[in-house]
């Protein structure tokens, strides 16, 4: 089947999609957007997190056909048009929140949405918002640092 939807502001189309394919597969293998990651494909790790009509979801659990006509934002859509990193992206680099980096795209999408919703999160809020994103390298401490840093920088900028 053919699937058409908007990814990071651009209309994208994929043909010959098998009906059982996930949104994740179509993004990665058919649309040239492998930033969203395939760590578990069962909604248990969050590495494939994208925003579907603004809402963070596991793209591995969205059937490709369900995305028809909808708006998807992936990690590739976080940086500015000029390639400038978003506040959250820069904070992850600066705080040492990236090791192997496989969990990073999903965490960035989730953290970005958290700060949009709650610009001054407590540690408890950060932990809850990111509790669906597994990281195996960092022990999460530097990820917390990064989100705190991003929140502080966003606050300063306002």
């Amino acid at each position: 089947m053919r699937v058409t939807f908007t990814v990071n502001g651009r209309r994208q189309e994929a043909d010959d999609v098998w009906e059982g394919e996930s949104l994740l597969y179509v993004l990665r293998e058919r649309m040239g957007l492998p930033g969203s990651k395939n760590a578990c494909e069962q909604g248990e790790c969050g590495s494939c997190t994208v925003r579907l009509d603004g809402v963070p979801v596991c793209s591995c659990l969205v059937a490709a056909g369900q995305a028809e006509g909808r708006e998807v934002v992936t990690v590739e859509g976080l940086a500015g048009e000029d390639g400038r990193l978003s506040t959250v992206q820069q904070a992850f680099v600066d705080a040492g929140a990236v090791q192997c980096g496989f969990c990073t795209p999903g965490l960035l999408v989730a953290a970005d949405e958290l700060l949009e919703r709650n610009p001054e999160p407590t540690d408890g809020d950060i932990r809850e918002a990111l509790s669906g994103n597994l990281c195996r390298c960092t022990g999460y401490e530097k990820i917390l640092d990064a989100v705190r840093l991003a929140a502080a920088r966003t606050g300063e900028a306002v």
């Binding site: 909604g43 248990e44 969050g46 809402v55 963070p56 596991c58 659990l61 509790s131 669906g132 994103n133």
Partner: peptide
């Protein structure tokens, strides 16, 4: 239920 992402769906 599961995670924030799953609760959203």
């Amino acid at each position: 239920v599961a995670s924030p992402q799953i609760r959203n769906r």
